[in-house]
Design a protein around this nucleic acid. Structure first.
Lengths: 184, 184
DNA sequence: GGATTTATGTTAGTGACTAACATTTCGTCA
DNA sequence: TGACGAAATGTTAGTCACTAACATAAATCC
């Protein structure tokens, strides 16, 4: 059974996304989201650390790290990172795709949120860099490769969100292929 | 002769950076910066659009675009982007290097600012993507490559800021080489 | 030196977010 | 079923970044 806390959170999330889509992200205050959802403003912040986090949350960090760490050590770091991400992102839970597209469209159309995407990436970037690190390459190389791969992934996600009838996996795979080309 | 507006701006900038280094970015309010600099809070925002912008400003966008556009069309987009950025970033005005390092160190040590780095990149990313676009590659490819290159550049800059005795150009060139490797 | 810009100040406000404390709602067990 | 302890929510008051409107001071031009 869904707990109350889960229900309240989902209620807030759905309400927020609906209002964002209708009035725009910046024009939608947290106070409005809360009152529309029938809770107080404080309750919103008990369930989400920030207004941004309703749209931007990426629970895949641990999986990505493991998937990258699983790639053979002798492959170039670029290839390891790309294949790890590909392994995680090419199979999303059903229904998550439309939801992700809705959220990313709001992000893409709100300049103030572009940076938020990057903020989220910071943690992921660290995870990737860590997973890449080995005796064979420098920390600098790990971090630069992680930054490049994440930058490419984010660009592809935003671009995909604006496309009409493309599957997420084909967009991701296509973008990662661009990176991997001539590296493997 | 330096105009008054330039003097006030530089005064605010120097004061802010000094306070950031001393007390930390988040612990330093704009009100404190302004009063320490001997002006009102409003004046601060007349000279800087945001608190972040004191540390993060990248006036190179037009140059980067031109430098990339100058690269031969038949080169792979990765190589064009990397060489364009290399051309611009490998020659910085004297003294700018120490200043940049100071600012980036504050950014690197302040999680809240990591996203700001990405925000700044959004504009640069668009410039790079535009400069890359040609009849030979898709818009998607341009954007993905731009994202990758910018992600790598930002990672390298942050990493460099924490290093002790490394020149900026060698860090940049090294990072770009990682990207260009096997692409040219 | 007076008039006109130009830079700055003041005041008041919005919106995201936090802290401290009060209150309700809920599951649990007698 | 009803009291009890805990979890979820509410209230209030505050901080800080940032904006708008209007007022004043200071630099520049004639």
């Amino acid at each position: 059974m869904t707990t109350k806390i889960e229900r309240t959170r989902e209620n807030l999330r759905a309400t927020a996304v609906r209002l964002f889509a209708q009035f725009g992200y910046e024009a939608t205050s947290v106070a409005l989201i809360a009152s529309t959802a029938g809770v107080s403003e404080m309750t919103f912040f008990r369930h989400f650390p920030s207004k941004e986090s309703v749209l931007i949350d990426d629970p895949f960090d641990p999986e990505i790290g493991e998937a990258i760490a699983r790639q053979p050590d002798m492959l170039p770091p670029f290839v390891r990172a790309v294949r790890g991400i590909r392994a995680v992102w090419s199979r999303l839970p059903d229904g998550a795709e439309e939801d992700l597209r809705t959220r990313l469209r709001i992000v893409a159309s709100t300049p103030a949120l572009h940076s938020a995407l990057g903020k989220n990436s910071t943690a992921t970037e660290a995870v990737i860099a860590e997973a890449l690190s080995s005796g064979l390459i420098s920390d600098r190389t790990s971090r630069v490769v992680a930054g490049a791969v994440l930058g490419a992934l984010n660009a592809a996600l935003l671009d995909w969100s604006m496309a009409e009838d493309e599957s997420l996996s084909s967009a991701i795979l296509g973008a990662l292929d661009i990176l991997e080309a001539n590296h493997g």
